[in-house]
């Protein structure tokens, strides 16, 4: 089980970020406004913003004085709206979900047609195309606003764990009783992408045997559902109750899995760094 967790933790995504035209100096081609890099699946994209801005420093119209100011910066992802016509629309990316989860939910690679193609061919490099914007207001109500900086991201992460802990144990006491040092280690493990550190703290919160509910979130494209999921139920049953139909093809941590597995078994192997198990339904 630990091996699977480690493989999941080390999973990475290829990202191509394009700086929005109005933020860059004039007369630059699209290629000149692009950077490519790898990002861990278990990370918040917004926490990489200072690094991204440093890369774009030379082409930015307005010089940035404070790289930790994350206010009003947001990303959008290309989403295929029509597979036949190859139409793409841009969807604002919710920073408060792990980037790997957003990729599974929004990327056009996880439609039934493309997933079959990818499974049958080797030597394919998937690159997810994102665009970086800064506007006076956030585009929709779906993006959580950031007023301060990285501290807000850290708080969001901690409250996600508290919520997950509440669902698993019926109260958040176990998480709230962690020492300051332990919570610092937990956050550092995300910033430094250190699995050993993460396991040290995580073992105190995640039970060996589940008796109550599983922290589960289901992505259907942009929409996110957080149903009550009893630990003894199979994923198939949960999906059937929630959507009133048989759903057989889902993706967890970038891997297509069977829905017949027990929710608690899936949680132990595939849960994300914020304490939730994310399931994305494969689109038609």
């Amino acid at each position: 089980m630990d091996d699977i967790q480690k493989l999941i933790w080390n999973g990475q995504l290829n990202i191509e970020i394009t700086l929005s035209q109005d933020l860059a100096i004039a007369n630059l081609t699209r290629e000149a406004r692009q950077i490519n890099f790898k990002i861990p699946r278990n990370a918040y994209i917004i926490s990489y913003l200072p690094f991204i801005l440093m890369k774009f420093e030379s082409i930015l119209k307005r010089k940035i004085t404070n790289y930790d100011d994350l206010c009003n910066w947001w990303f959008s992802a290309e989403q295929q709206s029509n597979s036949e016509l190859k139409d793409f629309t841009e969807t604002p990316l919710m920073w408060n979900y792990p980037i790997g989860v957003s990729y599974d939910a929004l990327s056009s690679n996880f439609t039934r047609e493309t997933i079959n193609k990818i499974n049958n061919t080797s030597n394919i490099i998937n690159v997810w195309k994102l665009t970086l914007y800064k506007t006076e207001k956030y585009p929709t109500n779906t993006i959580l606003p950031i007023y301060t900086g990285m501290e807000e991201v850290r708080q969001q992460f901690m409250h996600q764990w508290k919520q997950a802990c509440y669902i698993m144990h019926g109260s958040a006491k176990l998480f709230m009783s962690l020492s300051l040092q332990e919570t610092t280690i937990l956050w550092d493990s995300i910033v430094e992408n250190d699995h050993e550190k993460f396991l040290k703290v995580q073992k105190k919160i995640v039970p060996v045997q589940f008796t109550r509910n599983i922290p589960l979130r289901i992505h259907t494209g942009v929409q996110v559902v957080q149903p009550v999921c009893r630990s003894d139920k199979s994923l198939k049953n949960v999906l059937k109750i929630e959507f009133n139909e048989e759903i057989t093809r889902v993706v967890v941590q970038g891997i297509e899995i069977s829905t017949n597995y027990n929710a608690s078994d899936l949680y132990c192997r595939f849960y994300s760094f914020d304490g939730f198990l994310y399931v994305s339904i494969i689109k038609n």
């Binding site: 919710m94 408060n96 708080q155 969001q156 409250h159 919520q163 509440y166 109260s171 958040a172 957080q226």
Partner: peptide, 14 residues
């Protein structure tokens, strides 16, 4: 429940 702050996107019903 004096425990955690949910994100603004979560539905009240859930």
């Amino acid at each position: 429940n004096n425990s955690f702050a949910p994100s603004g996107q979560q539905l009240v019903g859930e």
